[in-house]
């Protein structure tokens, strides 16, 4: 391994080890993230067991169109992110940059759709409090979690968009070598944010739709 490679940082002695180490580090961090969401989902699950009728009725009040479109958008973004990461590793600069750009745009699209959904929710009386529309006893509880969980997810996604856009910018300017571990690390984080949504979508949007 060349010691003088521009992507090599202290204290690593080879780029190969550095990539391994960075990817190992982000996996450890993702384990931490999983526990972060697991705490809230555990509480959510317990409350759903305690209040099945209220939670089903509340879930029916979410807008499944916004939710489903956003699921499709985010899953697609994970595809382009995966392509970008692999392309960067293979040294395909144009493909990597293009896919990073698309990923960031899809992430932004998710946030825009989510914004319209939030607007509809607010106008539709789905904010817990005196103006809340649903009658079922635990429906406000459900929407407490709806806002908290989708909000935390949106914050994660925003961080992801900034990171991806930063990679694309630095890659385009040529200040970040394609061999940098940053591409894989960012991709793994992006996939986790996507995966969190894969849990949130069925828990928040799908219950109560079949009957």
């Amino acid at each position: 391994m060349s010691q003088a490679h521009p992507a090599l940082r202290e204290p690593w002695r080879s780029l190969h080890r550095q990539r391994q180490g960075a990817s190992f580090g982000i996996w450890v961090f993702l384990a931490s993230e999983v526990m972060f969401f697991a705490g809230a989902l555990m509480v959510f699950g317990m409350l759903r067991l305690q209040h099945p009728a209220g939670f089903l009725a509340a879930a029916r009040a979410t807008d499944i169109w916004f939710g489903s479109v956003n699921t499709a958008v985010l899953l697609t973004s994970s595809l382009t992110m995966a392509v970008a990461s692999q392309a960067a590793e293979a040294g395909l600069r144009r493909l990597a940059l293009r896919c990073l750009g698309i990923t960031a745009l899809l992430g932004l699209a998710f946030l825009v759709v989510k914004g319209f959904e939030y607007r509809a929710d607010i106008l539709g009386g789905l904010v817990p409090g005196p103006t809340f529309r649903l009658e079922e006893p635990a429906a406000q509880l459900f929407f407490g979690f709806y806002w908290a969980l989708t909000g935390v997810h949106a914050v994660h996604l925003t961080i992801g968009i900034v990171a991806v856009a930063g990679l694309a910018w630095r890659g385009w300017r040529g200040t970040l070598p394609l061999a940098s571990p940053a591409f894989e690390v960012t991709a793994l984080y992006w996939h986790l944010v996507d995966l969190v949504w894969v849990f949130l979508y069925p828990l928040l949007y799908l219950p109560g739709r079949s009957g």
Binding site: V43, M46, L47, Q50, H51, G54, P128, G129, P137, A138, Q140, L141, F143, G144, F145, W147, A148
Partner: peptide, 14 residues
Amino acid sequence: GLGLPIFDPAHGGD
């Protein structure tokens, strides 16, 4: 801070 009923027993929270 936001008034979301998460643990509030009045809304069935625990």
